[in-house]
Design a protein around this nucleic acid. Structure first.
Lengths: 136, 136
DNA sequence: GTACTGTACTACTGCACATAGTACACATGA
DNA sequence: TCATGTGTACTATGTGCAGTAGTACAGTAC
């Protein structure tokens, strides 16, 4: 269902992540959860910047990263649209980055001295929001 | 088994994490995996700095964080030792930080478009290195 | 005393991030 | 044609953090 999205994004000042990364994560998650679908149009660079009261350059940077990764595609003079799914990274690169994410999570669980089985159970539930995507 | 540890730590220049955080993570993980046990002595600030060819201040900063979190205890003029396990954070704080870690992991899995069930399986195996600790 | 330990400062450099402002090419519609 | 809105590119500036460098002080052991 191609349509223009209001794209409700929350920017948290307390969030340790850079603003641009917060936007990137939010958009990617909305695509992964099928809240945004291929063909949907995103808010303009200047529009989203005004909505979030941040600098347009920051939004442009986030959009550029998403475009480079293949999540969005730009149509000059028109706007940005959610791209059709495709394989963006090699399997080796995906495995390597997942290893990093796993390592970071294990470190955090160790730091918190959190029971591993309980942490795993909570993560299991959290992963359920991700909708299966068919990759072209 | 209280003993002095050589503490083989690898500092990766390509690692996006700050050096001090790499040290903190490494020491915490060694304690979590029981490679370091309560009473074990750690290398001196200057000694480890020389071994890793980094600034002593960076090591001191890492040690200070570990001491503040309760993983180590300092004995003035003597050195730093692995502390006996104790509850360091409130349950609410632990839950909050685990939520953050879970959120970060879910974001990464979504970014990689990685099959959630496979990611969970790999994480399950990775968590097995953590030894159960009795918290005082 | 000497030689270790941890700890506490200040100063400086480099880098990432966000902001600010400007400019250009393209598409649309009046 | 012209105005408007779109993405994109570029330079400049300020801020905060990480890391380095150097110095100093207090406690412990021999």
């Amino acid at each position: 269902m191609a349509r223009t999205q209001a794209l409700m994004i929350q920017i948290a000042t307390g969030d340790p992540r850079p603003i641009s990364k917060q936007i990137v994560d939010a958009v990617r998650l909305k695509i992964a959860t099928a809240e945004l679908e291929p063909g949907d149009q995103l808010p303009s660079v200047r529009g989203l910047a005004q909505q979030l009261t941040i600098n347009p350059n920051t939004v442009a940077k986030a959009y550029a990263e998403l475009t480079g990764e293949g999540w969005l595609e730009a149509r000059q003079g028109l706007g940005l649209y959610v791209a059709t799914p495709r394989q963006r990274l090699s399997n080796a690169e995906r495995d390597r980055r997942l290893d990093e994410a796993i390592s970071a999570f294990v470190h955090e669980v160790a730091a918190l001295d959190y029971p591993p089985d309980k942490a795993l159970a909570r993560l299991d539930r959290a992963l359920k929001v991700l909708a299966p995507r068919k990759t072209a």
